[in-house]
């Protein structure tokens, strides 16, 4: 697994907070990632929901360009770290200790995790970036509730997982 540099939490948070404001002042758009997956679905789906989403977002389709940039950012972060760029399916020490070793079984868990996030983010109207970071920055009560819900769900499943398997 690629070992990346990790800054102190305060500095990392400061960086992301300043980034949110930078994006807002430059582009006028509030940070949010999960809707980008709607734009992605809109590339191949003709369902009314995705067509309406497309019309709402306008012809620029900025969310799609934004999420294309994310893997490139990861590549840059990995290249600028001292270790080598390593591709692999490892999930780190802790997750690997509770997840099945077989790749097919591990991948199923990850697909289910992704699916719950995709569905849940749309039901809740946002994800960690849109609700927890942007929403809390606006002190928006529904976003604070959502962030608490995200955390509660994560604590529930991870505690369960490590108590049952670990």
């Amino acid at each position: 697994m690629t070992e990346v540099i990790v800054w102190n939490g305060w500095i990392g948070g400061l960086g992301i907070g300043l980034y949110v404001l930078f994006q807002l002042v430059v582009t006028g758009k509030m940070l949010g990632v999960s809707s980008g997956y709607c734009s992605l679905c809109g590339c191949f789906s003709r369902a009314t929901f995705f067509i309406e989403q497309k019309q709402k977002e306008g012809p620029l389709n900025w969310r799609l360009w934004f999420i294309f940039g994310l893997p490139l950012g990861g590549l840059l972060a990995a290249w600028s770290s001292p270790g080598d760029w390593v591709a692999g399916f490892s999930l780190g020490k802790l997750y690997d200790s509770v997840f099945p070793d077989a790749l097919w079984a591990k991948s199923m868990v990850l697909v289910v995790g992704g699916l719950l996030m995709g569905l849940g983010a749309r039901m809740a109207g946002g994800c960690t970036s849109g609700h927890a970071i942007s929403g809390m920055a606006m002190l928006n009560p529904p976003s604070i509730v959502a962030a608490a819900g995200f955390f509660a769900g994560g604590v529930f499943i991870v505690q369960l997982l490590f108590r049952m398997v670990g």
């Binding site: 719950l116 996030m117 995709g118 849940g120 819900g149 769900g153 994560g154 499943i157």
Partner: peptide, 16 residues
């Protein structure tokens, strides 16, 4: 939705 998201978040060890 947020609880469902949280479960997925914990399972996948990543967010969108």
């Amino acid at each position: 939705g947020s609880l469902m998201f949280g479960i997925g978040w914990g399972l996948a060890g990543a967010c969108p």
